[in-house]
Design a protein around this nucleic acid. Structure first.
Lengths: 210, 210
DNA sequence: GCTTGAATCATACATTCGTTTAAAATATCC
DNA sequence: GGATATTTTAAACGAATGTATGATTCAAGC
Protein backbone atom coordinates (compact mmCIF):
# COMPACT_ATOMS: atom_id res chain seq x y z
CA UNK A 1 0.00 0.00 0.00
CA UNK A 2 0.83 3.59 -0.34
CA UNK A 3 4.17 3.62 -1.99
CA UNK A 4 2.76 7.00 -2.73
CA UNK A 5 3.96 8.51 -5.88
CA UNK A 6 2.41 11.51 -4.21
CA UNK A 7 5.16 12.54 -1.84
CA UNK A 8 7.96 11.48 -4.12
CA UNK A 9 8.39 14.93 -5.61
CA UNK A 10 8.01 16.44 -2.17
CA UNK A 11 10.87 14.37 -0.84
CA UNK A 12 13.04 14.79 -3.90
CA UNK A 13 12.70 18.53 -3.44
CA UNK A 14 13.72 18.22 0.20
CA UNK A 15 16.88 16.31 -0.65
CA UNK A 16 17.86 18.44 -3.60
CA UNK A 17 17.28 21.67 -1.71
CA UNK A 18 19.27 20.44 1.28
CA UNK A 19 22.26 19.67 -0.91
CA UNK A 20 22.06 23.01 -2.69
CA UNK A 21 21.52 24.99 0.51
CA UNK A 22 24.52 23.25 2.06
CA UNK A 23 26.71 24.17 -0.89
CA UNK A 24 25.59 27.68 -1.75
CA UNK A 25 23.50 28.92 1.15
CA UNK A 26 19.77 29.55 1.04
CA UNK A 27 20.02 32.97 -0.59
CA UNK A 28 22.34 31.63 -3.28
CA UNK A 29 19.93 29.00 -4.54
CA UNK A 30 16.90 29.51 -6.78
CA UNK A 31 13.72 27.48 -6.85
CA UNK A 32 14.47 26.63 -10.45
CA UNK A 33 17.79 25.07 -9.51
CA UNK A 34 16.10 23.07 -6.78
CA UNK A 35 13.26 21.77 -8.90
CA UNK A 36 15.60 21.00 -11.78
CA UNK A 37 17.88 18.92 -9.55
CA UNK A 38 14.85 17.24 -8.00
CA UNK A 39 13.35 16.49 -11.43
CA UNK A 40 10.22 18.25 -10.28
CA UNK A 41 8.09 21.05 -11.61
CA UNK A 42 8.79 24.62 -10.58
CA UNK A 43 5.39 25.04 -8.96
CA UNK A 44 5.91 21.98 -6.78
CA UNK A 45 7.83 23.93 -4.14
CA UNK A 46 5.00 26.37 -3.55
CA UNK A 47 2.47 23.57 -3.67
CA UNK A 48 4.19 21.35 -1.10
CA UNK A 49 5.97 23.92 1.08
CA UNK A 50 4.05 27.15 0.49
CA UNK A 51 7.15 29.25 -0.16
CA UNK A 52 10.93 29.19 -0.22
CA UNK A 53 11.33 30.32 3.37
CA UNK A 54 9.14 27.58 4.81
CA UNK A 55 11.01 25.06 2.69
CA UNK A 56 14.27 26.20 4.23
CA UNK A 57 12.70 26.12 7.68
CA UNK A 58 11.56 22.53 7.22
CA UNK A 59 14.93 21.48 5.88
CA UNK A 60 16.83 22.87 8.84
CA UNK A 61 14.29 21.61 11.33
CA UNK A 62 14.33 18.11 9.88
CA UNK A 63 17.98 17.85 10.86
CA UNK A 64 18.28 19.93 14.00
CA UNK A 65 15.34 18.57 15.90
CA UNK A 66 16.24 14.86 15.85
CA UNK A 67 19.90 15.69 16.30
CA UNK A 68 19.31 17.65 19.47
CA UNK A 69 16.86 15.04 20.67
CA UNK A 70 19.51 12.38 20.19
CA UNK A 71 22.10 14.48 22.02
CA UNK A 72 19.86 15.13 25.01
CA UNK A 73 18.78 11.52 25.15
CA UNK A 74 22.35 10.32 25.08
CA UNK A 75 23.27 12.72 27.86
CA UNK A 76 20.28 11.72 29.99
CA UNK A 77 21.03 8.04 29.53
CA UNK A 78 24.61 8.76 30.47
CA UNK A 79 23.80 10.57 33.69
CA UNK A 80 21.14 8.07 34.69
CA UNK A 81 23.28 5.05 33.89
CA UNK A 82 26.09 5.42 36.36
CA UNK A 83 24.25 6.30 39.53
CA UNK A 84 26.24 8.69 41.67
CA UNK A 85 29.66 8.02 40.25
CA UNK A 86 30.93 10.73 37.96
CA UNK A 87 30.23 10.43 34.26
CA UNK A 88 33.21 9.79 32.00
CA UNK A 89 33.99 13.18 30.60
CA UNK A 90 34.74 11.98 27.09
CA UNK A 91 31.30 10.39 27.05
CA UNK A 92 29.70 13.81 27.45
CA UNK A 93 31.65 15.23 24.55
CA UNK A 94 30.75 12.13 22.60
CA UNK A 95 27.06 12.62 23.28
CA UNK A 96 27.43 16.22 22.23
CA UNK A 97 29.25 15.60 18.96
CA UNK A 98 28.42 12.13 17.69
CA UNK A 99 24.89 12.90 16.45
CA UNK A 100 26.32 15.76 14.41
CA UNK A 101 29.08 13.81 12.73
CA UNK A 102 27.46 10.42 12.42
CA UNK A 103 23.73 10.09 12.34
CA UNK A 104 22.18 8.15 15.15
CA UNK A 105 18.78 6.52 15.18
CA UNK A 106 17.08 8.95 12.82
CA UNK A 107 18.91 8.58 9.51
CA UNK A 108 16.42 9.70 6.88
CA UNK A 109 19.26 10.17 4.49
CA UNK A 110 21.60 12.08 6.77
CA UNK A 111 24.74 12.50 4.72
CA UNK A 112 27.66 14.73 3.87
CA UNK A 113 25.33 17.50 2.70
CA UNK A 114 23.33 17.32 5.89
CA UNK A 115 26.49 17.75 7.94
CA UNK A 116 27.50 20.75 5.92
CA UNK A 117 24.02 22.21 6.29
CA UNK A 118 24.05 21.80 10.07
CA UNK A 119 27.51 23.33 10.14
CA UNK A 120 26.00 26.42 8.51
CA UNK A 121 23.35 27.04 11.11
CA UNK A 122 25.20 29.62 13.15
CA UNK A 123 26.32 31.72 10.22
CA UNK A 124 23.50 31.30 7.72
CA UNK A 125 21.61 34.58 7.53
CA UNK A 126 17.93 33.67 7.59
CA UNK A 127 14.90 35.58 8.79
CA UNK A 128 14.05 32.73 11.14
CA UNK A 129 17.59 32.09 12.34
CA UNK A 130 17.13 33.76 15.75
CA UNK A 131 14.00 31.73 16.43
CA UNK A 132 15.60 28.54 15.15
CA UNK A 133 18.69 28.97 17.29
CA UNK A 134 16.75 30.15 20.31
CA UNK A 135 14.15 27.42 20.45
CA UNK A 136 16.04 24.48 18.99
CA UNK A 137 19.74 24.97 19.70
CA UNK A 138 19.99 27.09 22.82
CA UNK A 139 18.32 24.64 25.25
CA UNK A 140 20.62 21.84 24.17
CA UNK A 141 23.63 24.12 24.39
CA UNK A 142 22.91 25.28 27.92
CA UNK A 143 22.06 21.74 28.95
CA UNK A 144 25.44 20.45 27.78
CA UNK A 145 27.24 23.50 29.11
CA UNK A 146 25.87 22.70 32.55
CA UNK A 147 26.83 19.04 32.27
CA UNK A 148 30.33 19.86 31.11
CA UNK A 149 30.80 22.50 33.76
CA UNK A 150 29.70 20.05 36.43
CA UNK A 151 32.27 17.45 35.45
CA UNK A 152 35.18 19.69 34.53
CA UNK A 153 37.60 21.62 36.72
CA UNK A 154 36.01 24.88 37.73
CA UNK A 155 36.86 28.12 36.03
CA UNK A 156 35.21 31.52 36.08
CA UNK A 157 31.83 31.68 34.32
CA UNK A 158 33.23 33.96 31.65
CA UNK A 159 36.27 31.79 30.99
CA UNK A 160 34.08 28.73 30.73
CA UNK A 161 31.60 30.35 28.39
CA UNK A 162 34.38 31.47 26.08
CA UNK A 163 35.86 28.00 26.04
CA UNK A 164 32.50 26.42 25.36
CA UNK A 165 31.94 28.83 22.49
CA UNK A 166 35.32 27.94 20.98
CA UNK A 167 34.59 24.23 21.18
CA UNK A 168 31.19 24.68 19.55
CA UNK A 169 32.82 26.76 16.86
CA UNK A 170 35.46 24.15 16.19
CA UNK A 171 32.76 21.54 15.83
CA UNK A 172 30.59 23.50 13.45
CA UNK A 173 33.52 24.67 11.37
CA UNK A 174 34.58 21.05 11.04
CA UNK A 175 31.10 20.08 9.90
CA UNK A 176 30.95 22.91 7.40
CA UNK A 177 34.38 22.17 5.90
CA UNK A 178 34.51 18.40 6.17
CA UNK A 179 33.83 18.11 2.46
CA UNK A 180 37.02 19.93 1.61
CA UNK A 181 39.56 18.56 4.05
CA UNK A 182 41.83 16.91 1.52
CA UNK A 183 42.60 20.11 -0.33
CA UNK A 184 43.08 22.13 2.83
CA UNK A 185 45.38 19.61 4.54
CA UNK A 186 47.58 18.89 1.54
CA UNK A 187 46.09 15.43 1.22
CA UNK A 188 46.68 14.32 4.79
CA UNK A 189 42.98 14.00 5.61
CA UNK A 190 40.27 12.49 3.47
CA UNK A 191 37.11 14.34 2.47
CA UNK A 192 33.94 13.62 4.46
CA UNK A 193 35.77 11.36 6.89
CA UNK A 194 33.21 11.81 9.64
CA UNK A 195 34.58 9.00 11.80
CA UNK A 196 38.05 10.50 11.92
CA UNK A 197 36.59 13.94 12.54
CA UNK A 198 34.51 12.71 15.45
CA UNK A 199 37.38 10.75 16.97
CA UNK A 200 39.73 13.69 16.79
CA UNK A 201 37.12 16.15 17.96
CA UNK A 202 36.35 14.18 21.09
CA UNK A 203 39.99 14.17 22.08
CA UNK A 204 40.15 17.86 21.29
CA UNK A 205 37.02 18.68 23.28
CA UNK A 206 38.10 16.69 26.30
CA UNK A 207 41.41 18.49 26.41
CA UNK A 208 39.79 21.89 25.99
CA UNK A 209 37.95 21.56 29.29
CA UNK A 210 40.63 19.91 31.44
CA UNK B 1 45.94 67.77 -1.77
CA UNK B 2 43.31 65.66 -3.39
CA UNK B 3 40.79 65.22 -0.65
CA UNK B 4 38.92 64.06 -3.66
CA UNK B 5 35.21 64.19 -3.40
CA UNK B 6 35.60 61.76 -6.22
CA UNK B 7 36.30 58.56 -4.32
CA UNK B 8 34.01 59.39 -1.45
CA UNK B 9 31.12 57.46 -2.95
CA UNK B 10 33.55 54.69 -3.82
CA UNK B 11 34.61 54.36 -0.21
CA UNK B 12 31.15 54.76 1.20
CA UNK B 13 30.07 51.86 -0.98
CA UNK B 14 32.97 49.77 0.29
CA UNK B 15 32.03 50.34 3.92
CA UNK B 16 28.30 49.89 3.43
CA UNK B 17 28.77 46.72 1.40
CA UNK B 18 31.18 45.26 3.94
CA UNK B 19 28.68 45.74 6.74
CA UNK B 20 25.84 44.25 4.71
CA UNK B 21 27.92 41.33 3.43
CA UNK B 22 29.00 40.60 6.99
CA UNK B 23 25.40 40.52 8.17
CA UNK B 24 23.56 38.81 5.34
CA UNK B 25 26.19 37.25 3.11
CA UNK B 26 27.02 38.39 -0.41
CA UNK B 27 24.14 36.58 -2.08
CA UNK B 28 21.67 38.01 0.42
CA UNK B 29 22.48 41.64 -0.35
CA UNK B 30 21.33 43.69 -3.35
CA UNK B 31 23.15 46.55 -4.98
CA UNK B 32 20.18 48.74 -4.17
CA UNK B 33 20.56 48.06 -0.47
CA UNK B 34 24.25 48.83 -0.69
CA UNK B 35 23.92 52.08 -2.58
CA UNK B 36 21.02 53.19 -0.39
CA UNK B 37 23.06 52.64 2.79
CA UNK B 38 26.04 54.33 1.17
CA UNK B 39 23.95 57.32 0.04
CA UNK B 40 25.19 56.70 -3.46
CA UNK B 41 23.58 56.17 -6.80
CA UNK B 42 22.76 52.65 -7.94
CA UNK B 43 25.05 52.88 -10.95
CA UNK B 44 28.01 53.84 -8.79
CA UNK B 45 28.80 50.21 -7.99
CA UNK B 46 29.20 49.25 -11.61
CA UNK B 47 31.09 52.44 -12.34
CA UNK B 48 33.65 52.05 -9.54
CA UNK B 49 33.83 48.25 -9.22
CA UNK B 50 32.60 46.97 -12.58
CA UNK B 51 30.18 44.46 -11.08
CA UNK B 52 28.95 42.98 -7.83
CA UNK B 53 31.39 40.09 -7.83
CA UNK B 54 34.47 42.28 -8.17
CA UNK B 55 33.12 44.50 -5.41
CA UNK B 56 32.91 41.49 -3.12
CA UNK B 57 36.37 40.40 -4.18
CA UNK B 58 37.86 43.79 -3.32
CA UNK B 59 36.06 43.89 0.00
CA UNK B 60 37.39 40.52 1.10
CA UNK B 61 40.84 41.21 -0.24
CA UNK B 62 41.06 44.58 1.50
CA UNK B 63 40.82 42.75 4.82
CA UNK B 64 42.53 39.44 4.22
CA UNK B 65 45.67 40.68 2.54
CA UNK B 66 46.86 43.11 5.24
CA UNK B 67 45.72 40.73 7.95
CA UNK B 68 47.79 37.86 6.64
CA UNK B 69 50.69 40.20 5.99
CA UNK B 70 50.54 41.34 9.60
CA UNK B 71 50.38 37.77 10.85
CA UNK B 72 53.36 36.65 8.80
CA UNK B 73 55.35 39.71 9.76
CA UNK B 74 54.64 39.15 13.44
CA UNK B 75 55.71 35.53 13.15
CA UNK B 76 58.89 36.40 11.28
CA UNK B 77 59.81 39.07 13.81
CA UNK B 78 59.14 36.56 16.54
CA UNK B 79 61.38 33.87 15.12
CA UNK B 80 64.14 36.32 14.24
CA UNK B 81 64.01 38.12 17.56
CA UNK B 82 65.01 35.41 19.98
CA UNK B 83 67.98 33.89 18.25
CA UNK B 84 68.20 30.16 18.83
CA UNK B 85 66.14 29.98 21.99
CA UNK B 86 62.65 28.58 21.45
CA UNK B 87 59.85 31.01 20.73
CA UNK B 88 57.23 31.43 23.43
CA UNK B 89 54.38 29.32 22.23
CA UNK B 90 51.65 31.72 23.24
CA UNK B 91 53.39 34.36 21.14
CA UNK B 92 52.83 32.27 18.03
CA UNK B 93 49.13 31.90 18.76
CA UNK B 94 49.07 35.61 19.47
CA UNK B 95 50.64 36.42 16.13
CA UNK B 96 48.12 34.13 14.49
CA UNK B 97 45.01 35.54 16.13
CA UNK B 98 45.64 39.13 17.14
CA UNK B 99 45.41 40.67 13.67
CA UNK B 100 42.03 39.01 13.25
CA UNK B 101 40.51 40.20 16.50
CA UNK B 102 42.19 43.57 16.86
CA UNK B 103 43.46 45.40 13.85
CA UNK B 104 47.16 46.01 13.73
CA UNK B 105 48.98 48.56 11.66
CA UNK B 106 46.50 48.73 8.81
CA UNK B 107 43.27 49.97 10.34
CA UNK B 108 41.36 51.53 7.46
CA UNK B 109 38.22 51.28 9.49
CA UNK B 110 38.59 47.68 10.65
CA UNK B 111 35.66 47.15 12.96
CA UNK B 112 33.04 44.72 14.21
CA UNK B 113 31.66 44.21 10.72
CA UNK B 114 35.11 43.53 9.33
CA UNK B 115 35.66 40.82 11.92
CA UNK B 116 32.36 39.22 11.07
CA UNK B 117 33.19 39.39 7.39
CA UNK B 118 36.55 37.70 7.89
CA UNK B 119 34.84 35.09 10.03
CA UNK B 120 32.68 34.26 7.04
CA UNK B 121 35.49 33.55 4.64
CA UNK B 122 35.56 29.78 4.99
CA UNK B 123 31.83 29.27 4.65
CA UNK B 124 30.79 32.07 2.31
CA UNK B 125 29.86 30.49 -1.01
CA UNK B 126 31.49 32.67 -3.65
CA UNK B 127 32.68 31.87 -7.15
CA UNK B 128 36.14 33.11 -6.26
CA UNK B 129 36.28 31.50 -2.81
CA UNK B 130 38.64 28.69 -3.84
CA UNK B 131 41.07 31.13 -5.41
CA UNK B 132 40.80 33.52 -2.48
CA UNK B 133 41.43 30.80 0.07
CA UNK B 134 44.14 29.16 -1.98
CA UNK B 135 46.24 32.20 -2.77
CA UNK B 136 45.61 34.37 0.28
CA UNK B 137 44.81 32.11 3.21
CA UNK B 138 46.52 28.80 2.54
CA UNK B 139 50.12 30.05 2.55
CA UNK B 140 49.63 31.75 5.90
CA UNK B 141 47.91 28.69 7.28
CA UNK B 142 50.66 26.28 6.31
CA UNK B 143 53.29 28.74 7.50
CA UNK B 144 51.73 28.90 10.98
CA UNK B 145 51.02 25.19 11.00
CA UNK B 146 54.72 24.57 10.51
CA UNK B 147 55.68 27.04 13.21
CA UNK B 148 53.22 25.58 15.68
CA UNK B 149 54.23 22.03 14.89
CA UNK B 150 57.88 22.93 15.41
CA UNK B 151 57.30 24.30 18.89
CA UNK B 152 54.65 21.90 20.13
CA UNK B 153 54.92 18.32 21.32
CA UNK B 154 54.94 16.03 18.34
CA UNK B 155 51.88 14.16 17.26
CA UNK B 156 51.04 12.27 14.08
CA UNK B 157 50.57 14.46 11.02
CA UNK B 158 46.89 13.58 10.83
CA UNK B 159 46.26 14.29 14.50
CA UNK B 160 48.03 17.61 14.22
CA UNK B 161 46.16 18.65 11.10
CA UNK B 162 42.83 17.87 12.72
CA UNK B 163 43.76 19.85 15.77
CA UNK B 164 44.92 22.78 13.71
CA UNK B 165 41.66 22.72 11.78
CA UNK B 166 39.67 22.76 15.01
CA UNK B 167 41.59 25.75 16.34
CA UNK B 168 41.12 27.67 13.11
CA UNK B 169 37.43 26.82 13.21
CA UNK B 170 37.09 28.04 16.78
CA UNK B 171 38.76 31.28 15.82
CA UNK B 172 36.61 31.97 12.79
CA UNK B 173 33.41 30.96 14.53
CA UNK B 174 34.30 33.39 17.30
CA UNK B 175 34.84 36.16 14.76
CA UNK B 176 31.57 35.41 13.01
CA UNK B 177 29.51 35.31 16.20
CA UNK B 178 31.26 37.94 18.29
CA UNK B 179 28.44 40.37 17.61
CA UNK B 180 25.92 38.12 19.31
CA UNK B 181 27.76 36.81 22.36
CA UNK B 182 25.57 38.42 24.97
CA UNK B 183 22.40 36.68 23.85
CA UNK B 184 24.09 33.32 23.43
CA UNK B 185 25.88 33.38 26.80
CA UNK B 186 22.91 34.57 28.84
CA UNK B 187 24.54 37.92 29.36
CA UNK B 188 27.87 36.64 30.66
CA UNK B 189 29.89 37.98 27.73
CA UNK B 190 29.55 41.35 26.07
CA UNK B 191 28.96 41.81 22.36
CA UNK B 192 31.96 42.63 20.17
CA UNK B 193 34.37 42.31 23.06
CA UNK B 194 37.35 41.59 20.86
CA UNK B 195 39.93 41.98 23.62
CA UNK B 196 38.28 39.35 25.81
CA UNK B 197 37.86 37.08 22.80
CA UNK B 198 41.53 37.34 21.88
CA UNK B 199 42.72 36.82 25.45
CA UNK B 200 40.58 33.75 25.91
CA UNK B 201 41.38 32.38 22.48
CA UNK B 202 45.12 32.55 23.07
CA UNK B 203 44.79 30.52 26.25
CA UNK B 204 42.53 28.12 24.39
CA UNK B 205 44.90 27.76 21.45
CA UNK B 206 47.95 27.22 23.60
CA UNK B 207 46.22 24.45 25.49
CA UNK B 208 44.97 22.80 22.32
CA UNK B 209 48.50 22.10 21.14
CA UNK B 210 50.13 21.10 24.44
C1' DG C 1 -15.61 2.35 -14.74
C1' DC C 2 -16.50 6.35 -12.82
C1' DT C 3 -15.88 9.83 -9.38
C1' DT C 4 -13.21 12.36 -6.25
C1' DG C 5 -9.17 14.40 -4.39
C1' DA C 6 -4.46 15.11 -4.76
C1' DA C 7 -0.32 15.83 -7.42
C1' DT C 8 1.99 17.44 -11.51
C1' DC C 9 2.40 20.25 -15.34
C1' DA C 10 3.02 24.19 -18.76
C1' DT C 11 2.51 28.81 -18.60
C1' DA C 12 2.08 33.43 -17.20
C1' DC C 13 2.29 37.12 -13.67
C1' DA C 14 4.27 41.06 -11.22
C1' DT C 15 8.68 42.24 -9.00
C1' DT C 16 13.15 42.65 -8.42
C1' DC C 17 17.64 41.82 -9.88
C1' DG C 18 22.29 43.44 -12.00
C1' DT C 19 23.62 46.18 -15.57
C1' DT C 20 23.64 49.87 -19.17
C1' DT C 21 22.98 54.40 -21.13
C1' DA C 22 23.45 59.20 -21.75
C1' DA C 23 22.87 63.54 -19.74
C1' DA C 24 23.94 66.52 -15.74
C1' DA C 25 27.09 67.81 -12.29
C1' DT C 26 31.46 68.23 -10.34
C1' DA C 27 36.29 68.42 -9.82
C1' DT C 28 40.97 69.23 -12.00
C1' DC C 29 44.35 71.58 -14.61
C1' DC C 30 46.41 75.18 -17.70
C1' DG D 1 37.91 81.08 -16.01
C1' DG D 2 37.36 78.09 -19.54
C1' DA D 3 38.61 73.35 -21.35
C1' DT D 4 38.87 68.67 -19.94
C1' DA D 5 38.36 64.69 -17.49
C1' DT D 6 35.92 62.39 -13.86
C1' DT D 7 32.06 61.38 -11.14
C1' DT D 8 27.15 61.39 -10.12
C1' DT D 9 22.58 61.06 -11.56
C1' DA D 10 17.90 59.59 -13.37
C1' DA D 11 15.93 56.44 -16.16
C1' DA D 12 15.50 52.34 -18.49
C1' DC D 13 16.88 47.62 -20.13
C1' DG D 14 16.53 42.55 -20.44
C1' DA D 15 16.96 38.72 -17.58
C1' DA D 16 15.91 36.21 -13.57
C1' DT D 17 13.34 35.73 -9.44
C1' DG D 18 9.36 33.89 -6.37
C1' DT D 19 4.67 33.04 -6.88
C1' DA D 20 -0.05 32.14 -8.84
C1' DT D 21 -3.28 30.07 -12.17
C1' DG D 22 -5.83 26.62 -14.47
C1' DA D 23 -5.67 22.55 -17.08
C1' DT D 24 -4.05 17.79 -17.01
C1' DT D 25 -2.56 13.54 -15.11
C1' DC D 26 -2.54 10.26 -11.62
C1' DA D 27 -3.95 7.23 -7.63
C1' DA D 28 -7.49 5.32 -4.86
C1' DG D 29 -12.41 4.02 -3.19
C1' DC D 30 -16.91 2.61 -4.11
Amino acid sequence: MHIRQADRAKNRILSAAEALFAEKGVAGVTLRQITANAHANLAAVNYHYFDKERLAWEIFLRRIRPLNAARLEALAKLEAGCGDQPVAFSAIIDAFARPLFICGSDPDGYNAHSRRLVGRIFTEPLPFAPELLGTEMQPTMTRFAQAIRRHAPKSSPADFVWRFSFVVGAMHHALATLHDMQARTNGICRNNDAEAALRNFIAFGVQAFT
